[in-house]
């Protein structure tokens, strides 16, 4: 099997078989990162550009490490947050990069659909590293890899996603992925952060955290996307923490072997208390480790690699 697509723009159009295939491939790449010499020649001679129009530490470093461990040459470009500010349009930037013949372009942008513009325009493979509140496919894949490792399967699991769903691309990509894989997804957050008609995505909606995390196998906490909220949606962080924080009391409602996830960066004391973030249920740092493997797998597969 191989991944017969040019780009990785979102989870919405991936099949269950494709997701399994990517996760299997990622699993086989994990071992490379534990070697003394953490490098294989798989993508030698390939050029990978990360084009980030939004600040990022984790995702960009993860992509860069993934590419380097496969021996690709990596170039990182940080651009100002919008083309309007910058003076050059996204399309012009893309055409200029294309002229230098890279093989894969990884883009993060604050505007939903930005990766789609590049994908429609360029011959190169485009990986969406997050576009506005739309999709963040590699985050969902690494989350699914982590859940699969810990639980063996996603089928039938109760997974609660709690936080600012409206502004979260992580939530959307995970909802698409986890529902495809047979999980029972509950979303939860303050009413103004639950987007309209989201139940049509096949999730159940809760406004009360206790109900959402009751008997959950997985609790995925999201932070408030303050930078994406167009106005003050919420009275205060204190009010938020009082009602939507995962803490040592409410976590008892979940299953005994619950795992706690967070895409980062975490806001300690807001959506998650330190003792939960650092506690025995937390797999937050394992998610980060798996991020490298998933991104290695995608770089490899989009370059035409076969398993």
């Amino acid at each position: 099997m191989n991944l017969s697509r040019k780009d990785m723009l979102g989870i919405i159009d991936l099949s269950r078989e494709e997701i399994d295939f990517i996760l299997d491939t990622a699993e086989s790449f994990k071992e490379i990162s534990t070697r003394k010499i953490k490098k294989v020649p798989t993508l030698r001679g390939k050029t990978v550009i990360t084009l980030f129009f939004e600040a990022s530490t984790r995702t960009r470093t993860s992509f860069e490490i993934a590419a380097k461990r496969l021996s690709a040459d990596t170039i990182n470009i940080s651009a100002s947050s919008s083309s309007v500010v910058k003076g050059e349009t996204l399309i012009d930037t893309a055409r200029n990069l294309e002229s230098m013949n890279p093989d894969i372009i990884i883009i993060r942008h604050s505007a939903a659909g930005a990766a789609h513009i590049l994908a429609g325009l360029l011959e190169q493979s485009i990986i969406n590293a997050g576009d506005g509140a739309h999709e963040h496919p590699t985050q969902a894949l690494l989350d699914m890899l982590t859940i699969r490792e810990k639980k063996g399967t996603m089928e039938g699991l109760k997974i609660a996603i709690v936080g600012d769903i409206a502004h979260s691309r992580v939530a959307r990509s995970n909802i698409y992925g986890l529902t495809k894989m047979g999980a029972d997804v509950a979303i939860c957050g303050p009413a103004m952060m639950i987007p309209r008609d989201i139940d049509q995505m096949g999730v159940s909606v809760y406004y009360n955290m206790e109900d959402a995390i009751k008997d959950a196998d997985v609790v995925m906490m999201l932070r408030m996307q303050l930078e994406r909220q167009k106005r003050d949606l919420f009275p205060s962080l204190r009010e938020y923490a009082n009602h939507f924080s995962l803490n040592r009391d409410n976590i008892k409602l979940a299953k005994n072997d619950v795992i706690v996830m967070h895409p980062g960066p975490i806001n300690r004391g807001v959506e998650i208390t330190p003792e939960i973030a650092d506690g025995p249920y937390s797999v937050i740092l394992e998610q980060v480790t798996n991020g490298v493997a998933v991104r290695m797998a995608l770089l490899y597969l989009l370059s035409g690699g076969k398993k």
Binding site: A112, R169, I198
Partner: peptide, 8 residues
């Protein structure tokens, strides 16, 4: 539903 899907 479409705006929710697209994140717009």
């Amino acid at each position: 539903f479409i705006s929710t899907q697209l994140g717009l």
